[in-house]
Computed example of a mutant assay.
Amino acid sequence: MAQQMIWGIRAETAQEEWIYNFWNEQLGIMNQMEPCEGTCNDHFVYWWHAHVIDALADGFERSRNPRYLARIDRVIEGVKRLSGDTLLHNYYDDMEWMALALLRVYDATKLAVYKDHVMNLWESIKTAWNGHCGGGMAWKKDQLDYKNTPANAPASILAARLYQRFGDTEDFEWAVRIYRWTKENLVDPQTGFVWDGMNRLGDGKIDYDWEYTYCQGVWIGAGLELFAITGDTAYLSDAVRTAETATARFAPDPGGIMADEGEDDCGLFKGIFVRYLRDLLRIRPDLHPIRRMLFRNAEALWNRSRNERGLIGRSWQGPVEPKVQLSAQLSGLMLLEMVASLPNAAPSD
């Protein structure tokens, strides 16, 4: 059986196990822990559910099964209900993730309702830009002087994708402006490694000791989108340099298995990283070390970090925690969907 078919079956199995283990029919969301024991949704995490929509969109793109779209609609309703009948939020990066996910749903359906959601979010997101730290997008509405990669790189991705779909030159200008600020302030000019943020404590300092996979992933994604628009290979070179640096740092040989980055939000970071590495491989399939790394991690997850119920651990080398957070399950599911979407690829490539 072809490798792509095998991974497609595994991804579909993981989607079914995810729904079985986490879906909350009453709330119309995924439980945020399994087992939930009645309290796991007391603090609703909006941005995890943006990635719930992303993962369901992965399933639809692979299978074209409309049940994924029906589930997405339920999740949107659930998120709105738990957020005060709105998709707007205090955290700019959370809204960016939601807009990116819903733009994918618009791409799949061409239904105006999803575009309307995206554009409403985008109008709020644009208020993040201000003069603190010389520009850049703020992390949240009540801390406008803290600027970080999670609020800037996804905003550049979103603006670039909006330009590609709807042709508003202001969106392209937004994408470039945000990208330039991020590169000048949060990307190591020597290595391309992406730092998390600056001025978190109001002291103007960069958090050099915060090293996270998802910062690398979204920066790679921003470069790919601007390369797609402009054809300027400098953007692609930025993406490749960061991908190679980050892969060497987070998945060093021998073995090349990415480490557990921690609980709560940190459980989602690797899934974001592998999503944008997959996007890079679609443009640069010759980057064989990165391809091999993704497949090694997927094999490790499938064989060592997935229990008899299909729950996935934070560490892709196992073991699975007694209580599995939705964030960790999402990262594992996204890894399986990403390798399933790479054609004719095997770990030995």
Rank of each mutant, 00 (worst) to 15 (best):
R241C: 04
G221E: 04
G38M: 05
Y208M: 09
A138E: 05
G231H: 04
I178S: 02
W316N: 01
H117F: 15
R314Y: 08
M338H: 10
L158V: 08
A151N: 03
T182F: 04
Y68H: 14
I312G: 00
R104A: 10
M1S: 12
G84P: 09
K80I: 03
I312T: 06
Y235K: 02
A153H: 05
N297I: 04
A155P: 03
D238W: 10
I206Y: 03
T169W: 11
A340H: 02
F193Y: 12
I178V: 14
G255H: 01
R10M: 13
R249H: 13
G255V: 04
M198K: 14
I290Y: 00
H43M: 11
R177Y: 07
K270E: 03
R278S: 06
G256E: 05
T230R: 00
N344R: 09
K110V: 13
P319D: 01
R282K: 15
V118R: 04
D171H: 15
T191F: 07
P189F: 10
G313K: 03
L186H: 03
S156A: 15
L236Y: 03
N344H: 12
G217S: 04
S348V: 11
I157E: 07
G204P: 06
A298S: 02
R306F: 03
W97S: 01
R200N: 13
P150R: 03
A14S: 13
D207V: 02
D145Y: 12
D145F: 11
N90K: 13
T39W: 09
E321T: 05
N148C: 10
V75A: 06
L330C: 03
R180M: 07
F295D: 00
I257Q: 05
F44E: 01
E170V: 12
T149M: 13
D286T: 12
S348E: 15
A151C: 08
G167S: 12
T169D: 14
T109K: 06
L27T: 06
L103D: 07
E211K: 12
I178D: 02
